[in-house]
């Protein structure tokens, strides 16, 4: 899982994709996860971190994480693997 390397994430949770010119907004947990992905963390690292920080259960988070990744793919923000 790799974010396209020229994608910019702002302090306030906005994302700009210079390839398409599109902008996106993230909620704060979305921003946190996107930054972890950008820094090369794996799904299990991210899950470990989130479950330690937030009061979520593992299954709910896994469902939501996969959905989030699907949306990143949908918006073409990930490198093709």
């Amino acid at each position: 899982m790799k974010l396209k390397n020229n994608i910019a994430i702002s302090e306030t949770g906005f994302v700009f994709d210079p390839n398409s010119g599109d902008s996106y907004s993230l909620n704060s947990i979305g921003k946190e996860i996107l930054e972890l992905i950008k820094s090369g963390k794996s799904k299990s690292d991210i899950s470990f971190h989130i479950l330690n920080t937030y009061d979520a259960d593992e299954f709910t988070f896994e469902r939501n994480y996969d959905d989030f990744i699907d949306m990143l793919k949908h918006h073409k923000l990930l490198e093709n693997e």
Partner: peptide, 16 residues
């Protein structure tokens, strides 16, 4: 105590 969880989302901005 852990932070309150919310689903991560990303949504496209259609300016204005």
């Amino acid at each position: 105590t852990k932070l309150r969880y919310e689903r991560p989302i990303i949504s496209k901005i259609n300016a204005g």
